[in-house]
Design a protein around this nucleic acid. Sequence first.
DNA 1: GCATATAAGTCAACATGGCTGACATAAAAT
DNA 2: ATTTTATGTCAGCCATGTTGACTTATATGC
Lengths: 143, 143
Amino acid sequence: MLFFGYRDFTGVADEILADYGFGRAHHRAIYFIGRHPGMTVSDLLMILRITKQSLNRVLGQLIEEGYVLQQQGVRDRRQRLLSLTAKGRALEERLSAAQRALIAGAYREAGAEAVEGFRKVLLGIMKSDEDRARFERAMPPRR
Amino acid sequence: MLFFGYRDFTGVADEILADYGFGRAHHRAIYFIGRHPGMTVSDLLMILRITKQSLNRVLGQLIEEGYVLQQQGVRDRRQRLLSLTAKGRALEERLSAAQRALIAGAYREAGAEAVEGFRKVLLGIMKSDEDRARFERAMPPRR
DNA sequence: GCATATAAGTCAACATGGCTGACATAAAAT
DNA sequence: ATTTTATGTCAGCCATGTTGACTTATATGC
């Protein structure tokens, strides 16, 4: 079920990305930068768990084509703080809208209770507390 | 959430596959052949939605290394009916066990009700009735 | 203040798994 | 007898992951 669901979920975005000559890797970068404006390159690397070289290939394109902005960090000037340009936000919105529409349909049919279960199970599948923490609303176990 | 969940779900299998020099594409073939013994190459192509050439690359390896068996169809001798050998079933079981353990943990924490919601939402995300039909237990709308 | 560590970027080479296009063979269907 | 279908195959391209080696700028620790 995850195979089919994930394929169709990414599929609706892939169609749009093709118009821009981008791929799924570009989408991931745009998505996370949009969600965490001002994040550093290392932050993004940790989320995506890919190598610097892989990331730089897509990030370089996104910067060159004016979708992503890099600004030198103020506290630490080695850092390059990432954010979306207006053009980047527009693309992000277009992609999110398509995926949101798909998910919204599924949510509508399944009901609020099912949605809660869906989220719970997905959180349980994640192996790292750090990843889970990105989504947990109220999260008690600090440790 | 789908990104993180899917990554970790495939991750536990990927680790095992690396021992055999196989990748995710091999796993998909093994999984679906294991689930539908005697299926044809076209059946598999339709499920995976990849090209014949892509499939043959992995299928060829699986056959050559003795994980998958091909038998000429009886009704239609052009067909090559696919099934797992004992070796193939062993690998399939090892992969499934790892993924089952991950999912079982998530199910245990989330509860039966959450599981039902998880399934419902994933079914709703699938864009094709054909894919949904592979999972629906009682399915009224025939059309 | 100097040595070391860290954040980021770069070059080169390689693997996996998608893709297109062209073509071959055997068997079924018309 | 001709056409269609199921399968396989060669060749080459693209996206996106990998390793390894190295550079540059800046921060940090002694």
